[in-house]
Design a protein around this nucleic acid. Structure first.
Lengths: 336, 336
DNA sequence: TTGTACGCGTTATCAG
DNA sequence: CTGATAACGCGTACAA
């Protein structure tokens, strides 16, 4: 007597036990109008058996039959999500669920381009949201051809326009612009900007840098650029370099974490912050209020996840291309 | 002339265009032994058409037919994942993929117990990994009955033993024990511990507290407990209370973030850290090295994600209950 | 209420 | 040797 591994109950199991057809079971469990005149006694019996068997409909089989797609695939960047992104993702997930879609996060994808696209397409999602580092024109084309909407996170909306690729971006240039303007308003004319070397972050860093440069150009200020790794040693190296070439007046540290590392290195070097050097981060995470002096930052306010979800769903159902930029930057001045 | 929404190509489309049966297409595309003797010419034609059509097999249809389950559902806690958890999750995802399974993250689940279990069961995963705040005995039973393995994150292994529920836990008691012992080694006998009020964090906080208490009991030290929210105000409140009742000698701040908030509040109050008060966080994230003075912490080293993945898969294929605790704590002493 | 075709792909069986 | 037929997995929905 070998114990068999449990198997999920099927509609057929229920039909057999209840002595009715599978059609009847389906009608009863779905409260379908076509089965409206099935006697209450039968209905009760079917329901009782379904319950007893722990029956749960097979989502795959159902969607295979109905042809419905309710999956939205979210393919991560390979980086740690900050509280901002996490918070948005939660709201977005919930909002999508309310609209009848299921968002699944698909992490640690090792492929890109057509290979990645094929693995996503196999799941027949209604849409895929992926970092632009995973997308290639051929991959996007494959998905679109299969009726799967594609959202590039970070892709350039101008370049995407007309290709069918939708975009969902954080406007990094705008963040840099806000930070740069805030530093310039304080009278600084000699600015330094940090750009992460880590590839997925680098693109964003360059966008932010561009914004600072734009702000600087408005008043004829200068901008120095430094590559930085996410490590105390790299921060110390930059501060040491400033010791040689002269300290900048204002520093934009890419984000709060990089800025936090820089702040530590500046304090270690005995630099007066903000007396000698003004410092800004971005994202406005709680970290800003842990550091002393407290860190100035650029808060990124997001449009309601519900609204974004609605527009994503509209794009899915209408098969149209949309370009969403749910974030807007606001400087927050603190002690640095 | 209405443009029809693109539809994914099916095996039937290919068969029609190639003038062969769907069986032939299937054999060719899968390099099945049964189709080994299909002439190269036909094979090439089928492959070319599949390629041209952008054909990708329908994963659902395939698994429906073969009965295979390769999905592992990971249901988040509703909190921001730190770098530690994120890093583990990435490695774990990759390792599972190498073993033929796909890990999907399912966030912002609004249900718990049987309701949640039903929504997971509908996806027919091979296993579900969920926070114990989402699991109830009835829910677990439903899943097990359907042949779906269940891993409770944070569930008590002792309580689970024999019920079929597997566990995957971080040993919070051990973290508190390590922190407590480190503080006591420095000679502190008047300890304070912070416990977050936020429900999902509270459980972990209580586990860590228990560990500190255990350490304190070994040498007869005292332990004060303070509830804390994740806000600068709450930290300031606690420090103010210490002003009234007297400062503790050593503080365990639950984790680095809560400790960082406390550090800021202590410095604001003019308290000498670590001269007057020693402070420890936990998790050892980069934040520790941004703060000045740099924060002592408890690093949590995880067993290799590959090894954990192997054991999870073994549990799935053999249908056995396992209890994994892939983390071990190591104190890291810095300036605080 | 039931029989059954269908959605998509796999595979054992059978025929030219 | 080459390849088609058909049953099947699970649930839905139309015709009877």
């Amino acid at each position: 007597m070998t114990s068999i591994r449990p198997r999920p109950a099927t509609i057929t199991d229920i039909a057999r036990q209840a002595g009715v057809s599978t059609a009847t079971v389906s009608y009863v469990l779905n409260d379908a109008p076509a089965g409206a005149r099935i006697p209450e006694e039968t209905r009760a019996r079917v329901r009782a058996i379904a319950d007893e068997l722990g029956y749960v409909p097979h989502a795959n089989a159902r969607s295979l039959r109905t042809g419905s797609r309710d999956l939205v695939l979210y393919v991560h960047f390979d980086v740690v999500h900050g509280p901002l992104a996490t918070g948005f993702l939660y709201g977005f997930t919930r909002a999508l669920r309310d609209l009848g879609y299921t968002l699944m996060q698909y992490g640690a994808e090792r492929h890109r381009g057509v290979k990645a696209a094929r693995s996503w397409a196999a799941l027949r999602p209604a849409a895929v949201i992926a970092g632009d580092d995973r997308l290639t024109p051929a991959g996007v084309a494959l998905l679109l051809k299969a009726g799967i909407r594609v959202f590039g996170m970070g892709s350039d909306p101008a370049a995407a326009k007309g290709t069918g690729l939708s975009t969902l971006i954080m406007d990094h240039r705008a963040i840099g612009l806000a930070a740069g303007r805030d530093l310039l308003e304080r009278g600084y004319r000699d600015l330094a900007v940090v750009v992460p070397v880590d590839p997925p972050l680098r693109v964003m860093g360059e966008g932010r840098l561009e914004g600072v440069r734009e702000a600087a150009a408005e008043v004829g200020a200068s901008v120095r650029v430094h590559e930085m790794e996410y490590s105390p040693g790299s921060a110390a190296g930059i501060v040491a370099a400033w010791g040689e070439e002269g300290l900048p007046e204002g520093v934009f540290g890419y984000n709060d974490e990089f800025a936090g590392l820089l702040l530590g290195a500046l304090l270690d070097a005995g630099v007066d912050v903000p007396g000698r050097v003004g410092l800004m981060g971005a994202d406005d995470v709680m970290l800003c209020r842990m550091l002393r002096p407290t860190l100035s930052s650029v808060r990124v306010e997001s449009e309601s996840p519900e609204e974004i979800a609605r527009r994503v769903v509209a794009s899915i159902t209408e098969g149209t291309e949309v370009h969403l930029s749910p974030w807007s930057p606001v400087p927050v001045r603190r002690q640095t």
